[in-house]
Amino acid sequence: MMDASFWPELFNGAWTTLWVSGSSIALGVLMGLGVAMLRGARIPLLGRALTLYVSVVRATPLVTLVLFLFVAAPSLGWDVDRRVIAVAAMTINTTAFNAEIWRSSFATFPREQIEAAKAAGMTKGLMLRRIMLPQMLITSLPNLVNEMSLLVKSSPAIAMVGLVDLTRVSYRIGAVTYQPLPPILAAGAMYLLIIGALVRLQRVADRHAGRLAM
């Protein structure tokens, strides 16, 4: 049984995991949308550069990206807080995956609705805000939430730059108490609660997407 005095450390570690993951998720969803839109803007050089970015980042493990930024920042003379490095690495990672989700939504959006909006005199910006994005968000949400879950599961990579996340705290408590199992089980339960909340959100999104498709 784990001593109650260690629970505050676990909660602090869980907060670090939630804060870094949540910030990266919010930035990644928005930036992924931006990348998807720019890739469809018919600017050849920019489109090829963004396609290369998406391909390279999706093939790169998150822990490698975290370590690369951690080493590269001082080499360039940048004094960057390790929390910023962690959020930046996770954001770069999830942006690439979110960009593919949004790109698929753009590609499968009903052309007849676009033609009808054009016929009604809507500008591209107005059509995007009022017609495309609301529907695309609903249909893409299951995949976006799945990507959020994967990012949280990968978040222990931030411990490589010294951040005390939930996984690192559980290891530290186990090393101090010489009983590694209780803190690891406690950390696992907290991860289960976080992922469970996202899975619940995904199921709700699936239902809404199904109704929209009917």
Rank of each mutant, 00 (worst) to 15 (best):
M132L: 14
V80C: 11
G13A: 04
G77D: 02
A26V: 10
S5M: 13
S149D: 11
P180E: 07
A49N: 11
A120F: 13
G34Y: 02
V169Y: 01
A187T: 00
Q179C: 11
P182L: 06
L38H: 07
V57L: 13
E112F: 05
A159I: 11
L52S: 13
I92N: 00
L185M: 14
G77Y: 08
R39G: 02
P142Q: 05
A88I: 09
L18K: 05
N146E: 10
V71T: 15
L133W: 01
S149T: 15
L166W: 00
L185Y: 08
P8D: 07
S170E: 04
L76S: 04
M2S: 09
L150H: 08
G13Q: 01
A88C: 12
A4H: 12
S140Q: 00
L193T: 14
L30N: 09
I114D: 09
P183H: 06
L18G: 02
V57Y: 04
T108R: 06
A209V: 01
L46T: 11
N146I: 06
L69T: 07
T94W: 03
V54Q: 01
P74G: 11
R48A: 14
V57K: 06
D165L: 04
I131H: 06
T17W: 01
S149Q: 15
L144Q: 04
R211I: 00
M132G: 01
V84Q: 09
L52R: 12
V29S: 02
A89M: 07
P61W: 10
W19Y: 14
R168G: 08
V204E: 03
L128V: 09
A86T: 02
V204I: 11
L166C: 03
Q202H: 08
T167V: 13
V84M: 09
R172I: 13
R48F: 10
M136V: 00
V161Y: 06
E9N: 14
I173G: 00
H208I: 01
F6A: 11
